[in-house]
């Protein structure tokens, strides 16, 4: 019997209060009428209006989304390939180096990744802007994708793939028709992870960007350095809302998919 004592209840209450109260305060004060963020002066949505009229923020948001969509899509393709290589390709020369290069970016301090990529881009004379941020983001997020996808690849039954090959599928068709649908949830969560990592990144983007491309985190950081501002609160609220809706939807969808898969498996096991 597991006992649920007052200690556990207190730990959970205090813990989740600690995690959520700062964000709730942030959201509440985005509706504050006063410019002073710490004094409540009545309900107002004026900061949202000002945010929508602020060209710089809108441009930065657009750049950020473009970078995030492009880099996470390329990263998903490359990361899935890398995961497949790690799990299925067997031995090849340089395998240790390869897996090292997959895991190293996960623990690398962002300042070092950013610095090294910037020095590369300058060394080869590449103009810094959207392209260089996309290259940088793709590189570190493909490693996250490959970790997520390879954990799924390890756990699934390889004989399914072999059956498809025996039945006359080409290796590519076997991947497309058998492997891909099975690992699809991992691929999708890999994409989502890559997307949020890119959306979120300040340090690497600051190093690899040029004057032509400012992303939202860079914009927020330079505004926030001067102090708290209600416009940033409004922006944060919008971002928190998008993430919350996204995560809840994703978890409902995966729950449904898992139930459907469990049902299919039961049907398959039933003797005809």
């Amino acid at each position: 019997m597991r006992q649920f004592s007052w200690f556990n209840a207190t730990a959970l209450t205090l813990g989740f209060a600690f995690l959520y109260i700062p964000m709730i305060i942030l959201v509440i004060y985005s509706f504050n009428a006063s410019k002073l963020v710490t004094v409540w002066a009545g309900f107002s949505t004026q900061w949202y209006g000002e945010l929508l009229r602020n060209e710089e923020f809108l441009n930065a948001a657009w750049v950020t989304i473009k970078v995030a969509v492009t880099s996470s899509t390329i990263a998903t393709v490359l990361g899935t390939m890398a995961a497949y290589v790690l799990v299925r390709a067997g031995r090849f020369s340089g395998r240790t180096l390869f897996s090292g290069m997959i895991y190293a970016p996960l623990v690398m301090p962002e300042v070092i990744t950013g610095l090294s990529l910037l020095l590369l881009f300058i060394g080869i004379g590449l103009d810094r802007g959207v392209l260089t941020i996309v290259l940088a983001h793709t590189t570190f997020s493909m490693c996250y994708v490959s970790v997520v996808v390879s954990s799924r690849l390890v756990s699934f039954d390889q004989s399914l793939e072999e059956a498809a090959l025996d039945l006359g599928c080409s290796p590519f068709d076997a991947f497309r028709l058998v492997t891909l649908p099975i690992i699809a949830p991992a691929v999708i969560s890999g994409w989502l992870l890559a997307f949020t990592l890119s959306l979120d990144d300040l340090v690497i983007a600051s190093f690899t960007t040029g004057p032509s491309a400012t992303t939202l985190p860079i914009k927020i950081f330079s505004a926030v350095r001067l102090g708290v501002s209600p416009e940033i609160n409004a922006l944060s609220t919008i971002m928190i809302a998008i993430v919350t809706i996204g995560v809840i939807t994703a978890s409902l969808v995966t729950k449904q998919a898992a139930m459907r898969q469990a049902r299919d498996e039961r049907m398959a096991e039933r003797p005809a």
């Binding site: 942030l26 949020t196 927020i220």
Partner: peptide, 25 residues
């Protein structure tokens, strides 16, 4: 999910949230 949710929210925003809480006023 409640533990993971903040992890998906921008790091910068989560740090920023404390600036308004911890300042002198």
């Amino acid at each position: 999910m409640l533990v993971i949710l903040p992890f998906w929210t921008s790091f910068l925003i989560r740090v920023y949230a404390w600036m308004g809480i911890l300042s002198n006023e």
